[in-house]
Design a protein around this nucleic acid. Structure first.
Lengths: 341, 341
DNA sequence: CTGAAAGCGCTAACAG
DNA sequence: CTGTTAGCGCTTTCAG
């Protein structure tokens, strides 16, 4: 418990410095000495205090992660990937959950992240303001963004506009014309937000196909209940009902499916549906999905971040993983998948 | 960036000691002096390094959290509650995701948690072995368990046996006799595991109602796909089909619903269903649920933990929140709720 | 009320 | 290869 490296040194009959070298593996130590030190450490259950170490080395072996939701599938998936990658490399993950519009946001950026406690920061699905970005960069530690492109910051994202276009073109290719788009807010940060970009893809695909007049949009919270509410509303009128829906994320899509079934509509059949983001729920409900492989992304983000921590240069400032259209063959839910769109 | 408290002190024309007192609010400082220091700190954007501080105070303002899953609704819900409560009190949350059966488990308990980095540890839905518990207690920092009772450790749980009994009695009260129980493993740690206790409640309720011969059990992974698979199997034969299912957790219950609808069964109607654990998904799918208010629980855990950190005594060693039978009136999904079991 | 000095536990030169 | 000496940035006696 209260054991310090001095205790280990005393017990092994060496100096603190030698004990430190033996335990950390840095610097020359005779093999016999090393073993004696290691043995002594084990005997008294010594584990080095990273706080004391970081005070002198400047490295904390701790990464700060900022995320808007923990309990939403997409974010949870990334989080699990990030945590695993970090743990494998001996890093701690300190998590900050900033709900959109929360007052905590300032405290996290101005106080919690500013305290030299982290070797790096990962922001997931959060677009820091220019001021926030500047503040973080001033800390002089690597900063990585996942899921949202941030100016001056190494970002790992899909090309949301391409994804939106592909999704829409897929539905157009199936012969649909009345294609409703459901997603976040229309107004506001429409140009730079994730949803804004996806919507641009929708608009461009519809326009290119000469379907400007068929475009319609329903604003929705990016969640299952959001999709349900909007779906229940948009699909209730059988004459004005769209034949296809492009949902800005899978959680919306799942909500729409529930609403559609509630109304006695077959999906697919009476309604075709495409969502962006997921794959597991998508499998479960046999959606056709545009996948961005969130887990792999999370891991890449970590890999890159750690590369940055150790001083390696980064090849590019922004990586755009092209969205890919993937129709998943489910195993567990094979019978559900048979009737995929 | 590289600003230390010495810089603040110099700028304010005081000593480091005074600057420290002014900034931390501990010890006597003339109001004028204090303001001057605060002002100087703000000007150069000084934020104290908690690592350096903890070296001398012994407090890290950091809590370690161990959890088996991040991306499952129940755990995500608790995690959000814990994070929020911690953040509000100025604490960091460092998260370790230990999948059941993972080799990481030892590393986390023996190394990561052993490094004097935390003021306290919260284990959620994990039952530490006696050795692990002993190791943690030897750290001399508060330890709290959420969701699983741990010997010698302050634990916040529901009474799983009572919950299982209530759930079963509820179904019996509706007139059901063929009540299937779906949950984790039958064998193994049947007595001490969460599921083992819930099953005991089922058995006791069935026995008391003279329904021993009607008891049946299906083993299932505690997840939506697990519930789906088992449901698809158990419900396929229309002659041997149960009229009610008691699912050990809501995620299983959701899987069963999907399977049931797939088979053309109405839920409720052809099948009654009760799950334990959730409320939001339950609302969504109009389940009758036995609720344990996970978020409130998480917050209590934190409150208690922090009380322990600051030296206050704890009233009891184990708190059993009695399970309550709650039929939730959904607002968003009012129309779905109308036909609740 | 304020400053000087000591030291938390560790690692990094630098001599030996 | 090993020990000695300095701190990392902060808080805390203890005198003034």
């Amino acid at each position: 418990m209260g054991s310090a490296i001095a205790d280990v040194a005393a017990r092994a009959g060496v100096s603190k410095a030698t004990a430190s070298r033996a335990l950390s593996g840095k610097g020359y130590v005779a093999e016999v000495t090393r073993q004696r030190v290691v043995q002594a450490a084990k005997e008294i259950g010594f584990v080095a205090s990273p706080n004391a170490a970081s005070l002198v080395t400047g490295h904390t072996k701790n990464i700060g992660v900022v995320i808007p939701f923990i309990n939403r599938w997409f974010f949870g998936e990334i989080l699990e990937g990030v945590e695993e990658a970090l743990l494998n490399r001996g890093y701690d993950m300190t998590l900050y959950n900033i709900h959109p519009g929360s007052a905590d946001r300032d405290r996290v950026f101005d106080f919690f992240l500013a305290r030299k406690r982290f070797d790096g920061v990962i922001v997931i699905g959060v677009e820091p303001t220019p001021e926030e970005t500047a503040r973080l960069l001033r800390l002089d530690i690597p900063l990585v963004s996942v899921g949202a492109p941030v100016a001056d910051v190494r970002s790992l994202t899909i090309d949301d506009e391409v994804a939106g276009r592909l999704a829409t073109e897929h539905l157009i290719g199936l012969g649909h014309r009345r294609i409703l788009h459901m997603g976040g807010t229309v107004t506001g940060e429409g140009d730079t937000s994730v949803h804004g970009r996806r919507m641009r893809g929708y608009v461009s695909a519809m326009t290119q196909a000469g379907l400007e007049r068929e475009m319609s949009f329903a604003q929705t919270e990016m969640s299952v209940p959001g999709g349900y509410d909007a779906g229940a509303h948009e699909l209730s009128n059988s004459s004005s009902r769209p034949t296809a829906v492009f949902a800005a994320c899978d959680e919306i899509a799942i909500g729409v499916i529930i609403a559609a079934r509630r109304l006695g509509l077959a999906v697919p059949g009476d309604l075709s549906l495409v969502g962006i983001d997921g794959h597991e729920y998508a499998e479960m409900f046999s959606l056709t999905t545009i996948e961005q492989q969130p887990r792999a992304q999370g891991q890449s983000a970590v890999t890159d971040l750690l590369a940055a921590v150790s001083g390696e240069s980064l090849a590019a400032d922004v990586v755009d993983v092209p969205a890919r259209l993937v129709v998943r063959a489910s195993t567990t839910f094979a019978q559900l998948s048979a009737d995929a769109v």
